[in-house]
Design a protein around this nucleic acid. Structure first.
Lengths: 240, 240
DNA sequence: CGTGGCCTTGAACCTAGTCAAGTCTAGTGG
DNA sequence: CCACTAGACTTGACTAGGTTCAAGGCCACG
């Protein structure tokens, strides 16, 4: 029989007790269905900063839910330059861009110590047969991803550097808040270079824009630590 | 009883005889399942140029498959400026960005005479229960959309004007070809202004870049008519 | 065959990129 | 614990690609 430490361990890693369930696949599932989902999920040891979850070109097997930490996904163009596709926080799912292929189209790397739940896709497909709400939730999450990507397309097509950075910070703020963290102060897990890459601007422009936003009294910057001083103005500047 | 003209009409509009089935939801379905899908699809009179299929904010009810013509989808930002999200050709599906909401997040407008198949989403969800392959195909199509959007993000974040336009033309060429049309010469259904808006550059830059690509011998431009003279070079320039 | 919108080209301007140099900071090893 | 160092961050100066403004030409459609 399991000792209490092991038991506690198992419970902590159960979808049913997961604080992120409301953001993730279990949303709206009953406890029996959550158990079924829980059964197929693999939980591995944490990734350390810099570790890779999967590489572009690896065989596609699973989607992943992030439990803690941050991941970035990126792809390489033909010149070998990196393009950062996104930063992913707890409660979010990744791996949706390869479901009709046999290989991941991006690389996923830990920005800090990160734990994930692996959801083998073939087993998930089996569950979709039996659990209509799970099917609906998966489609909803993918729909939301499409919408988010299209918002990002608008940012990249239409916004200037200030609007981009403001939108980035507001977006992060909202997502941290959804995870139960402060919406007003947080630590960036990514470098200025990575932010710049993601936002389609130069590293130097990113630095200057941080300085500018601080001079305007919208934010306080202390290296990676950001404090949002005037969220409404920042939001307005972001030109959503 | 139906007369022969009406009968022919019905046959022409059946998924089973549709030439675009291989690009659309029926892919890999057996004839019985295709019939079931066909049953729920509504086919309305063609849209004329400028007609709207749905507006941003309209209640979300259906996804649409394009049978003929071209649609553009766009959204308005807070300043009332339009951002074109995409141009959609026969065999493609639209309406995926609103499935977890109750309202469309974009406006769909016909670029020319256009016919669509309306697929009511609640009825589609019922079919997903019974037809595993349909489920898989829907997920595959959404996955592909995510991948395409992420490719567009890379274009907007990293490419200069020449690379953007080259990528745009190559992309159209491939999609026309998938529809059985020439990959080397085609008519653009959109204005220079719309291309510019979509690619995140100015109308004037688009014009100048068309001229430049023609001077380089990569394409021939005659108003809306484009001939691709050197696809490999154009493809290389696009920096995929 | 007239007209409005689309397309094209020129010229001036400006935002953001590039190059360069110096500072800061987190992580390492003595 | 502290000194060291590599990489991250910041700022300045200059440059360039693309935007904006302006004007004229070209269709397509009534």
């Amino acid at each position: 029989m399991l000792n209490s430490v092991a038991l506690k361990h198992v419970e902590t890693l159960h979808c049913q007790s997961c604080k992120l369930a409301a953001l993730c696949l279990p949303l709206a599932l009953n406890s029996q269905d959550i158990s079924a989902l829980n059964e197929i999920i693999k939980r591995e040891r944490p990734l350390r900063k810099g570790d890779y979850l999967f590489h572009q070109g690896d065989p596609f097997t699973s989607i992943y839910a992030i439990r803690s930490g941050t991941l970035k996904t990126s792809s390489l163009n033909s010149n070998g330059e990196e393009h950062i596709i996104g930063f992913h926080l707890p409660g979010e799912l990744i791996g949706f861009s390869a479901m009709d292929l046999n290989a991941y189209t991006s690389t996923a790397q830990a920005q800090e110590t990160t734990t994930v739940c692996e959801i083998p896709f073939d087993q998930l497909e089996n569950l979709l047969e039996r659990i209509p709400k799970l099917r609906r939730q998966l489609i909803h999450i993918m729909s939301r991803e499409i919408r988010d990507d299209q918002n990002m397309m608008r940012l990249l097509a239409k916004k200037n550097a200030q609007e981009r950075l403001a939108a980035f910070l507001i977006n992060l703020s909202v997502r941290f808040h959804a995870n139960g963290y402060s919406a007003h102060q947080f630590r960036l897990s990514m470098t200025r270079q990575e932010i710049a890459n993601y936002l389609g601007i130069a590293t130097e422009t990113t630095c200057r824009t941080f300085t500018f936003l601080q001079q305007q009294g919208l934010i306080q910057v202390q290296g990676k630590y950001i404090q949002i001083m005037d969220a409404p103005s920042l939001c307005e500047l972001s030109n959503r």
